[in-house]
């Protein structure tokens, strides 16, 4: 009797295990830009790429980052506010813009100056190396930090609206401004709206 019970238990456990593993969705590596990309109600990487691409294309075609003296613009990243219901790192947007502006050859971004201190604190630490006896001073270079001439700031906004009993419209607005630090005037402004319609049961945070 006990052998039979044990056999039944083993069979039940192995069946349950088999079902559980069989029903587990397979982990897939998504190819960037593939047709069958999953669409989420929240913000995904492709939304940030879309907003960043729109911003850079608009900046380049507007002539806002053109200089007639052959020099490059030095940009500092100011505040990009996250006014959405999601916990997102706005660097997902800003980094894409920085990378593309750098590639364009028009804009360099300073990592030594920022509202919350230097992004790369090594610049300041390097300045203190001259005080150290351990460092061969002949290998030190004199620091002259480049001051920025433009600032990038912005905000990401989210609005949720119930369309009917079953659906909700989630709207995101990526608002960005490029300010000329010499006079405080906005020399470029852009807004990319991204709208998603989906089930009201789903959450976007």
């Amino acid at each position: 009797m006990s052998t039979r019970n044990t056999l039944i238990k083993v069979l039940a456990v192995s069946t349950a295990f088999g079902l559980a593993t069989g029903c587990t969705p397979k982990t897939q590596l998504l190819t960037p830009g593939a047709v069958d990309q999953p669409v989420t109600m929240g913000l995904s990487g492709s939304d940030f790429a879309q907003a960043a691409s729109d911003a850079v294309q608009s900046m380049l075609t507007s002539g806002a980052v053109d200089r007639s003296d052959g020099k490059k613009n030095i940009m500092v990243v100011s505040t990009v506010l996250n006014d959405t219901m999601q916990r997102i790192d706005t660097d997902q947007l800003v980094k894409k813009i920085r990378v593309d502006l750098l590639r364009s050859g028009k804009v360099l971004t300073t990592t030594a100056i920022g509202l919350n201190g230097a992004e790369d604190r090594m610049t300041q630490a390097y300045g203190e190396l001259s005080q150290s006896r351990k460092v061969d001073r002949s290998t030190l270079v004199r620091q002259r930090l480049a001051a920025p001439n433009m600032s990038l700031s912005g905000k990401i906004i989210q609005r949720n609206n119930r369309v009917d009993g079953n659906q909700q419209l989630v709207e995101y607005y990526f608002q960005l401004t490029l300010t000329d630090l010499a006079n405080g005037l906005a020399i470029w402004e852009g807004e990319t709206p991204i709208r998603k319609l989906g089930s009201a049961k789903g959450t976007s945070w």
Partner: peptide, 29 residues
């Protein structure tokens, strides 16, 4: 090939007979 955001796959809805202009700026000089 030069990489950049201007080389992404994108989509655009096309309504019948509606003229559409799609343009992009190269990522690098």
């Amino acid at each position: 090939e030069l990489k950049g955001l201007a080389s992404r796959w994108e989509q655009h809805p096309l309504r019948p007979a509606e003229p559409v202009m799609i343009d992009r700026v190269a990522p690098s000089p």
